[in-house]
Amino acid sequence: MNLELIKTIEQTLYREARLLDQERYKEWVGMLTEDIHYHMPGIETRYRRDKTEQVHDLTRMAFYNDDLEDLKKRLRRLETGTAWSEDPATRYTHMITNIEVVPTEKEDEVLVYSNFLAYRNRNEKDQDTLIGNREDIWRKTAEGYKLAKRMIILKQNVLLSKNLNVYL
């Protein structure tokens, strides 16, 4: 794997994280391909012997199982000016680590593993931390690399937060 490509992907992930920190969602959507699949399954606690497919079965309950239109719909809420719980704004920091870039069979696509830590703080002292793994497909386009697929595995059974007004 060439180092320049790894550097490019790393920089792309960091830029994406910065846009999310700053709630620059229009620009973030610009980093997604038209056929994006953005998926964060809900994962039950089950015994090791239990082979129920929890991650790849797309008919199951999930936090996110969105295409581009679905994501835009969610983001439209912020543009209405009446999303009362978003004002005052939440303060975000996304930390992205453990980046691994792997070639795929398609020349214009790379598989990218990464870990995230997303910290939120609101109002006086409302805060939480979300930690997990991501598995992405980034596709080379005329406008640089764009996110074509993201699978997010959050390491919580019960979401230890009241909501997910955050993209990971």
Binding site: Y64, W84, S85, L159, K162, N163
Partner: peptide, 18 residues
């Protein structure tokens, strides 16, 4: 349902805060 009344849903998010 996930987009309206999941934790990341357009409706649910405003309820919990209240």
């Amino acid at each position: 349902v996930m987009q309206t009344f999941g934790p990341g849903g357009a409706f649910e998010m405003d309820d919990g805060e209240n």
